[in-house]
Design a protein around this nucleic acid. Structure first.
Lengths: 140, 140
DNA sequence: TATTGTTATACTCTATAACTATA
DNA sequence: TATAGTTATAGAGTATAACAATA
């Protein structure tokens, strides 16, 4: 088995620092990173129960309750009773939520996009492949 | 200019999910990710003022005060007055802190290391190069 | 009785503003 | 007056435990 400890360490620190850096950059938008992440799922895939959203976001039910609370307060989603099962709640994106996502995707990643645009194409290709690998790792 | 928005979005989500995943995996250790990150700097580079540590960690002074508080309570570092400037505090790693770092680096990344070990060597190389690129991006 | 979701509570990480001590 | 650091306070994000409503 290869000695992967240095890579694990290097990767962990790089991700940790990048997370902080992105969070610092984020406050220009009125939704948080976590809210955007959850909203993006609802946007792409349509109405989803709170429980399923928690699974998709890999958080516990109480955490997703808070995220949905924030999105609902912001007017980006609404909760609806599921007629098929009264215990469940369906979270749906609103017209306003759709507009926010479109605006976010188009305009709100200016900082990161600018940095990426300044990289050599080869580095962007590396980051794209890394993102795919990390998404798989995060699913384990 | 190339269309880097999809890459920015993909990268942000991948990093966000990986951060949560690592945090879930972490609690087996008694120091947090943030504490380990700061302690690693002191470990590698020796005593450092609180202000310089804040700059290195890219956080504000009050945040580094809390991190150092936690490390000091855990016995991993001690604060010392700087004889050269009474306003400054020098943060030094303790013998116990050194042992923790060694143990951490050796044993505490088993989860991530295991996942990495199962990857094709080419993917590990990709992640290594990505970590280098991300560290540079985070510094901007 | 089991499942779904929320509420109560707590801990980590971060920030801005105000303060203390020293230069 | 300026700088280094801490304290006070607040908000985001997460968790476990206890609870209510429904199946």
């Amino acid at each position: 088995m290869p000695d992967v400890a240095p890579l694990a360490n290097e990767l962990r620190l790089a991700i940790h620092r990048m997370t902080r850096r992105m969070r610092q950059q984020h406050p220009t938008h009125d939704l948080t990173l976590t809210q955007i992440s959850a909203l993006a799922i609802i946007w792409r895939e349509g109405p989803i129960t709170a429980g399923d959203l928690a699974v998709r976001e890999q958080v516990r039910p109480p955490s997703i309750t808070r995220v949905v609370d924030g999105l609902e307060s912001a007017g980006a989603v609404i909760r609806k009773d599921n007629p098929a099962d009264g215990r469940q709640v369906l979270v749906e994106i609103t017209e306003d939520g759709i507009r926010r996502m479109e605006s976010y995707v188009e305009a709100r990643e200016a900082w990161l996009a600018q940095l990426l645009a300044e990289l050599p194409p080869k580095d962007r290709e590396t980051l794209h492949r890394a993102a795919v690998i990390l998404n798989e790792l995060a699913g384990h």
